[in-house]
Design a protein around this nucleic acid. Structure first.
Lengths: 167, 167
DNA sequence: ACGTTTGTAAAGTTAAAACTTTACAAAAAA
DNA sequence: TTTTTTGTAAAGTTTTAACTTTACAAACGT
């Protein structure tokens, strides 16, 4: 143990970071953001920007920016410790629920916007009737239905899924 | 009508392309791929690479590459028409179902891979017991649970949702 | 008050993605 | 067979995203 074990543990840490990151990257986080999250997640105590910087081998500014993004996603929060001057960050509890909630809400609001815009286009089109546009009208209608279907999926995830007590 | 109407219709087409694209971009399609899809979607007849090129104002190679990606996503298929030498492509029927099916399956297989790898790491860790690693073990366990929760969501979408007759 | 530390904005650089041009093999037409 | 057309690979270019360095205001300590 000791030195060798230390390295072994480090290796395992990196493996977890590598794998878990891939999952988070599927949810519109970039590589650095994902890696930073998992780093914080595996670290027992809250970390400072300088510790993150050393841990990932990137600049402090990069950490600052990534941390802000993770906060926007509600994955990370700033904590305060008596006597510590630097900002401290740690991962939020209830990882799964917090993450999905934020993520789903983002998608829903984006979808909602797109549906509104498509509706506007549709209204515009019906205002100037033209038999040549029948096909187009049908396409828009179908596109809107498509969007509503997606909306339904995400709403389902939100209502069914967040009630469970998990992770 | 006539000239003015033509332009108006074109404008509406572009608006739809713009909005619908944004939605598809949420599903790991890039801008060009998304725009190309909607272009094909709105076009009554199948299109050739040259028509796509003219329509989007990009190179033929770019279209060739984008079309391949759209085929991988099962959003587009090549069709044959007697006497037409060029390849023709059109959007698939049952847009919603085809799209979600492909998309969800991709996510599920990625998740599955990550779960396996995390399981391996976990096994590895339990093989070399060390009281210092208890916390890490717990983290891995939690991470795996997180992944299983995501897996469950996608499986639900797959089983519940694809049964509906829609779009 | 004054020097230090800390986080981040702004400017500049590097790395990666998207795209175009060129080149060419496979298929069709002559 | 030879010539032309078509799709795409390979190489080269441009554009965008990611990252670093520098600079500086705000907070802290003395």
């Amino acid at each position: 143990m000791g030195e060798a074990n230390e390295t072994n543990l480090e290796r395992i840490n990196n493996q977890i970071i590598s794998e878990f990151s891939k999952t988070l990257e599927m949810f519109s986080l970039n590589k650095t953001e994902a890696q930073l999250f998992v780093t914080l997640y595996l670290h027992e105590k809250p970390m400072t920007l300088d510790e993150m910087k050393d841990s990932l081998g990137k600049s402090k500014t990069a950490m600052s920016y990534a941390i802000r993004r993770l906060q926007e996603f509600n994955l990370v929060e700033r904590v305060w410790q008596k006597g510590v001057r630097k900002d401290l960050y740690e991962t939020r509890e209830e990882l799964y629920r917090k993450f999905m909630k934020t993520y789903v809400n983002r998608w829903l609001s984006a979808l909602n916007k797109q549906i509104n815009n498509l509706d506007d286009i549709q209204d515009n089109l019906t205002r100037y009737p033209d038999e040549h546009q029948e096909a187009l009208k049908h396409k828009i209608h179908e596109a809107i239905t498509f969007h509503h279907s997606l909306e339904e999926i995400f709403t389902n995830i939100k209502t069914n899924d967040f009630l469970r007590k998990d992770v």
